[in-house]
Amino acid sequence: MTDIEKLLAIEEIKQLKARYFRSIDTKEFDTLRTVFAPDAVFDFREALRDPVAGTPEGYTEHEPVSGLENIVTYIGGALANAQSAHHGHTPEIELLSETTARGIHPMEDTVKNGTFFFRGYGHYRETYEKIDGAWRIKTSQLTRLFVKIESR
Protein backbone atom coordinates (compact mmCIF):
# COMPACT_ATOMS: atom_id res chain seq x y z
CA MET A 1 0.00 0.00 0.00
CA THR A 2 1.15 3.53 -0.70
CA ASP A 3 1.22 6.08 2.10
CA ILE A 4 -1.92 7.70 0.63
CA GLU A 5 -3.72 4.33 0.51
CA LYS A 6 -2.76 3.73 4.16
CA LEU A 7 -4.05 7.15 5.20
CA LEU A 8 -7.31 6.59 3.30
CA ALA A 9 -7.78 3.17 4.95
CA ILE A 10 -7.19 4.65 8.42
CA GLU A 11 -9.67 7.46 7.72
CA GLU A 12 -12.27 4.95 6.46
CA ILE A 13 -11.90 2.98 9.72
CA LYS A 14 -12.30 6.21 11.75
CA GLN A 15 -15.48 6.98 9.80
CA LEU A 16 -16.71 3.42 10.38
CA LYS A 17 -16.38 3.83 14.16
CA ALA A 18 -18.03 7.25 14.03
CA ARG A 19 -20.97 5.65 12.18
CA TYR A 20 -21.17 3.00 14.92
CA PHE A 21 -21.43 5.65 17.67
CA ARG A 22 -23.98 7.73 15.74
CA SER A 23 -26.16 4.79 14.75
CA ILE A 24 -26.49 3.43 18.29
CA ASP A 25 -27.30 6.86 19.77
CA THR A 26 -29.80 7.80 17.06
CA LYS A 27 -31.32 4.29 17.00
CA GLU A 28 -30.48 3.84 13.31
CA PHE A 29 -30.12 0.09 13.60
CA ASP A 30 -30.27 -0.43 9.81
CA THR A 31 -27.16 1.75 9.58
CA LEU A 32 -25.57 -0.37 12.32
CA ARG A 33 -25.81 -3.32 9.92
CA THR A 34 -23.25 -1.55 7.70
CA VAL A 35 -20.71 -1.43 10.53
CA PHE A 36 -20.08 -5.07 11.44
CA ALA A 37 -18.79 -7.99 9.37
CA PRO A 38 -21.30 -10.82 8.87
CA ASP A 39 -19.33 -13.07 11.26
CA ALA A 40 -18.35 -10.33 13.74
CA VAL A 41 -17.97 -10.93 17.48
CA PHE A 42 -18.93 -8.23 20.01
CA ASP A 43 -17.60 -8.72 23.57
CA PHE A 44 -19.30 -6.35 26.00
CA ARG A 45 -18.82 -8.36 29.21
CA GLU A 46 -17.17 -5.37 30.87
CA ALA A 47 -19.86 -2.88 29.80
CA LEU A 48 -21.00 -2.22 33.38
CA ARG A 49 -17.97 -3.55 35.32
CA ASP A 50 -15.92 -0.92 37.09
CA PRO A 51 -12.32 -2.14 37.59
CA VAL A 52 -12.34 -0.92 41.23
CA ALA A 53 -15.98 -1.34 42.33
CA GLY A 54 -16.59 -4.52 40.34
CA THR A 55 -19.77 -5.70 38.68
CA PRO A 56 -22.98 -4.20 40.07
CA GLU A 57 -25.24 -6.42 42.14
CA GLY A 58 -27.91 -8.08 40.03
CA TYR A 59 -26.04 -7.62 36.75
CA THR A 60 -25.32 -10.79 34.83
CA GLU A 61 -22.42 -10.69 32.43
CA HIS A 62 -23.34 -12.03 29.01
CA GLU A 63 -21.14 -14.03 26.71
CA PRO A 64 -19.86 -12.28 23.59
CA VAL A 65 -22.43 -11.99 20.81
CA SER A 66 -21.53 -13.52 17.44
CA GLY A 67 -22.94 -12.67 14.03
CA LEU A 68 -24.14 -9.40 12.52
CA GLU A 69 -27.86 -9.90 13.10
CA ASN A 70 -27.36 -11.09 16.69
CA ILE A 71 -25.20 -8.04 17.45
CA VAL A 72 -27.73 -5.62 15.95
CA THR A 73 -30.58 -7.34 17.80
CA TYR A 74 -28.72 -7.20 21.11
CA ILE A 75 -27.66 -3.54 20.81
CA GLY A 76 -31.12 -2.59 19.56
CA GLY A 77 -32.78 -4.33 22.50
CA ALA A 78 -30.43 -2.75 25.01
CA LEU A 79 -30.64 0.81 23.67
CA ALA A 80 -33.98 1.10 21.85
CA ASN A 81 -35.65 3.00 24.72
CA ALA A 82 -32.53 4.61 26.18
CA GLN A 83 -31.10 8.07 25.81
CA SER A 84 -27.41 7.66 25.11
CA ALA A 85 -24.31 9.54 24.05
CA HIS A 86 -21.21 7.65 22.96
CA HIS A 87 -17.99 9.46 22.09
CA GLY A 88 -14.78 8.08 20.61
CA HIS A 89 -11.45 9.86 20.89
CA THR A 90 -8.01 9.74 19.27
CA PRO A 91 -7.89 6.18 17.93
CA GLU A 92 -4.75 4.17 17.36
CA ILE A 93 -5.16 2.21 14.12
CA GLU A 94 -2.62 -0.23 12.72
CA LEU A 95 -2.97 -1.66 9.22
CA LEU A 96 -1.92 -5.30 9.16
CA SER A 97 -2.53 -5.84 5.45
CA GLU A 98 -4.54 -4.31 2.62
CA THR A 99 -7.68 -5.94 4.06
CA THR A 100 -7.06 -6.27 7.82
CA ALA A 101 -6.37 -3.83 10.64
CA ARG A 102 -6.64 -3.43 14.38
CA GLY A 103 -7.35 -0.45 16.54
CA ILE A 104 -7.96 0.94 20.00
CA HIS A 105 -10.59 3.65 20.43
CA PRO A 106 -10.70 5.49 23.76
CA MET A 107 -14.36 6.16 24.55
CA GLU A 108 -16.85 7.56 27.02
CA ASP A 109 -20.56 6.99 27.23
CA THR A 110 -23.63 8.06 29.15
CA VAL A 111 -26.82 6.00 29.10
CA LYS A 112 -30.19 6.70 30.72
CA ASN A 113 -32.95 4.11 30.49
CA GLY A 114 -35.89 4.84 32.77
CA THR A 115 -34.45 5.15 36.27
CA PHE A 116 -31.17 3.44 35.30
CA PHE A 117 -28.32 5.85 34.58
CA PHE A 118 -24.64 5.22 34.02
CA ARG A 119 -21.57 6.99 32.81
CA GLY A 120 -18.30 5.33 31.94
CA TYR A 121 -15.14 5.45 29.97
CA GLY A 122 -12.69 2.93 28.63
CA HIS A 123 -11.57 1.49 25.29
CA TYR A 124 -12.89 -0.43 22.33
CA ARG A 125 -10.21 -2.91 21.18
CA GLU A 126 -11.10 -3.97 17.66
CA THR A 127 -10.08 -5.77 14.52
CA TYR A 128 -11.31 -4.80 11.06
CA GLU A 129 -11.68 -6.50 7.72
CA LYS A 130 -12.21 -4.95 4.30
CA ILE A 131 -15.11 -6.81 2.70
CA ASP A 132 -16.34 -5.99 -0.82
CA GLY A 133 -14.40 -2.73 -0.75
CA ALA A 134 -15.66 -1.50 2.64
CA TRP A 135 -14.12 -1.75 6.11
CA ARG A 136 -16.16 -3.61 8.74
CA ILE A 137 -15.65 -4.35 12.43
CA LYS A 138 -14.63 -8.01 12.76
CA THR A 139 -14.17 -8.14 16.55
CA SER A 140 -14.95 -5.57 19.20
CA GLN A 141 -14.17 -5.79 22.91
CA LEU A 142 -15.24 -3.06 25.33
CA THR A 143 -12.94 -2.64 28.33
CA ARG A 144 -13.54 -0.16 31.13
CA LEU A 145 -11.46 2.19 33.23
CA PHE A 146 -14.42 3.66 35.15
CA VAL A 147 -18.17 3.09 35.47
CA LYS A 148 -20.60 5.01 37.69
CA ILE A 149 -24.12 3.59 37.98
CA GLU A 150 -27.04 5.38 39.60
CA SER A 151 -30.77 4.77 39.92
CA ARG A 152 -32.83 7.91 39.57
Rank of each mutant, 00 (worst) to 15 (best):
T2R: 02
T2E: 00
D3T: 06
D3L: 04
E5Y: 08
L7M: 04
L7D: 00
L7N: 02
L8I: 10
L8G: 01
L8V: 13
A9P: 00
Q15K: 08
L16N: 03
Y20S: 05
F21I: 06
F21W: 07
R22Y: 08
R22P: 02
T26R: 05
K27W: 00
K27P: 01
E28F: 03
L32H: 04
R33M: 07
R33N: 05
V35F: 03
V35L: 04
A37S: 06
A37K: 02
A37H: 09
V41K: 13
V41A: 10
F42K: 13
D43R: 11
D43A: 13
R45W: 02
E46H: 14
A47F: 04
L48I: 12
L48P: 09
R49L: 13
G54N: 15
P56T: 09
E57Y: 13
G58P: 07
T60I: 10
E61Y: 02
E61T: 11
E63V: 15
E63Q: 15
P64M: 07
V65M: 13
G67A: 10
L68S: 03
L68D: 00
V72T: 09
Y74V: 10
Y74H: 14
G76W: 03
G77H: 05
G77F: 08
G77L: 06
G77D: 10
G77Y: 07
A78T: 13
A78E: 09
A80P: 00
N81W: 10
A82P: 13
Q83T: 15
S84K: 05
H86F: 07
H86S: 08
H86K: 13
H87M: 08
T90M: 09
E92D: 14
E94I: 15
L96V: 14
T100H: 09
R102H: 10
R102C: 05
I104R: 13
I104V: 15
H105F: 15
M107T: 09
T110V: 14
V111P: 13
V111W: 05
K112E: 10
G114P: 14
T115E: 12
F117C: 11
F118W: 15
G120Q: 06
G120H: 03
G120N: 06
Y121K: 12
Y121E: 05
Y121W: 10
G122A: 09
Y124E: 07
T127L: 01
T127Q: 06
E129I: 08
K130C: 02
K130T: 01
K130W: 00
D132S: 14
G133L: 01
W135M: 03
W135P: 03
I137S: 02
T139A: 06
T139D: 11
T139H: 06
S140V: 05
T143H: 02
R144E: 02
R144K: 12
L145K: 11
F146D: 11
F146E: 07
V147R: 12
V147N: 08
K148S: 14
E150W: 09
S151I: 08
R152S: 14
